[in-house]
């Protein structure tokens, strides 16, 4: 089974950025409520950044870090520490390439009951178009009747 789970810089930067904004707003709010003034200086910024990096890293690891494993039978996708989504290629009826904006792509796997699972190809530093064609071949190979082989296995 192949597994990809690289450090996803965009998701990490987003997590740290959100924490930095929240910590800064909380600091300013607390200062205003207690001292009726804002205390801003390099020590405060460095302290906020440290807290943001620690908090952002925790948030990224528990919520956003994507891990994708697949073989010829199916795949498993996990986001952070949430429970993994596991499907067999037989369950997939359509495969599509989705542009999420700003040049980021995902491969969307549609099932017969109008649900879908999205593989965040750009987050996983995979070539989305190549992954899409590979998945299409895996799905086609699994949906062939027994005795027949897909084009890749010929």
């Amino acid at each position: 089974m192949r597994t990809v789970a690289p450090w996803q810089r965009m998701n990490f930067a987003r997590s740290v950025g959100i924490f930095f904004v929240l910590v800064s707003v909380a600091w300013i709010g607390a200062n205003y409520l207690i001292l009726k003034d804002f205390f801003i200086g390099w020590p405060v910024i460095v302290g906020n950044l440290t807290v943001s990096i620690v908090g952002g890293t925790w948030w990224y690891i528990t919520r956003h870090h994507a891990r994708f494993s697949w073989d010829s039978d199916g795949f498993e996708l996990q986001r952070g520490r949430t429970s993994p989504v596991t499907r067999r290629w037989d369950d997939i009826s359509q495969v599509s390439l989705v542009h999420e904006g700003y040049g980021r792509f995902a491969v969307r796997l549609h099932t017969d009951n109008e649900e879908f699972v999205e593989i965040p190809a750009s987050d996983l530093t995979l070539d989305a178009s190549v992954l899409r064609f590979e998945v299409m071949q895996l799905v086609a190979a699994r949906s062939l009747p027994e005795g027949l082989v897909g084009p890749r296995e010929e």
């Binding site: 359509q94 495969v95 599509s96 390439l97 989705v98 542009h99 040049g103 969307r108 299409m136």
Partner: peptide, 19 residues
């Protein structure tokens, strides 16, 4: 369509092959 000049016409987001 998704990243090039077609974006001035519409925001192409989802692509199916062999549909």
């Amino acid at each position: 369509l998704m990243l090039g000049s077609a974006r001035w016409t519409a925001d192409f987001t989802e692509s199916f092959w062999e549909y």
